[in-house]
Computed example of a mutant assay.
Amino acid sequence: MLIDRCAHASPWRRISPAAKGLFALAALLGAYLAPSPGLALGLALGLVLLTLAGARVPLPDYLGAAAPALGFLALGCASLLFSLGGPGGLAPRFLPEALDPAARLGARSLAALAALLFLVLSTPLPHLIALLRQLRCPEVLLDLMVLCYRMLFVFATVFRDGRTAQAARLGHAGARRSLRSLGLLAAGLLPQVWLRALELHQAALLRLGDGPLRFLAPSFPRARQELAWAAAGSLGLLLGLGVLA
């Protein structure tokens, strides 16, 4: 929900998703082929600044969207730098020879993460789905994405209504009562979301499953011009990193 809110609030949502997708793809390629960790980190920093300043994503929201991936990346790098075993039994042992691989992995992963966040934090999911449909992505996959996207809002609505009802009855007055209310809310969410999903499934059956889910595609009047600018920027990015040199 955080990512979707940032994408809809960004002024770059009006830019063609094909242009942003092309630039993000070039950034991913540059992250993978960056000849040194320093260049990869520079690419990551540039993409972060572009997302914050250009797409106008607030820094707290950006950090919130990146936090799960950063935590996973930190664990991955730590698993390369430390090993369990040796004379001390299961004590962690630092591996100096793993510094260079860990630095390359961390820098490239940060640049790839920044490229993906640039795309998703400035492009609403319906625009991405329309782009994937133009790229001939399988319709079954797109329908699953649409249904999962819809169920996120259903889950958020049910959670917000339940929490509001609990707060009106002073269900969060005190730590003990808050913990009990949280348990009751979690237990009540499952049947409600299940019923909403069943209603959605029944609505799909009434359509007789005749073809994929269709929506009005967004219009981007300057799509060709924006795609040309994105292609020029992508080429300049790769040349600047020395990937195509």
Results as ranks from 00 to 15, higher is better:
P92V: 12
A102V: 04
L116S: 06
P126G: 04
R108Y: 06
L110I: 03
A115L: 09
P126Q: 06
G76D: 02
F159W: 02
L81N: 00
G76M: 02
V146R: 14
A111K: 03
G106I: 08
F118Q: 15
F82S: 01
D161P: 11
L185K: 04
M145G: 12
R133P: 11
A114C: 06
L179N: 02
D143S: 01
G86R: 15
G183I: 02
R196C: 05
A102Q: 05
G88M: 07
T164D: 15
Q134I: 00
A168H: 01
R169A: 05
A115T: 10
A186Q: 12
A156Q: 04
P124K: 02
I129W: 12
L132V: 02
R150D: 06
L147G: 10
G188D: 01
V193Q: 08
T157H: 09
A168V: 10
R160Y: 08
Q202R: 03
H127L: 05
R93F: 07
R169T: 06
L90E: 14
A187C: 14
L170Y: 07
P87A: 15
L105I: 04
L105Y: 13
L119D: 01
Q192T: 09
L200P: 03
L195I: 08
A115W: 13
A187V: 07
L81T: 10
A114S: 07
S83P: 02
Q192S: 02
G171M: 01
F94Y: 13
R177E: 02
Q202G: 04
L152E: 03
R196M: 15
G106M: 13
S181V: 02
R177M: 09
C77E: 14
T164F: 14
A175M: 13
L116M: 02
L116D: 00
L117C: 07
L119G: 01
G162S: 07
L95T: 10
L189G: 02
L147A: 13
E199V: 03
C148I: 06
D161L: 08
A186P: 00
D100G: 12
T157Y: 04
F159T: 13
F94D: 06
A165P: 03
H172S: 08
P101C: 12
A98W: 00
L80S: 05
Q166M: 09
A156W: 15
P126D: 00
A197Q: 04
V120Y: 00
I129D: 09
I129R: 09
G171T: 11
R133H: 06
L147T: 14
L117T: 05
G171D: 14
H127W: 04
V154F: 14
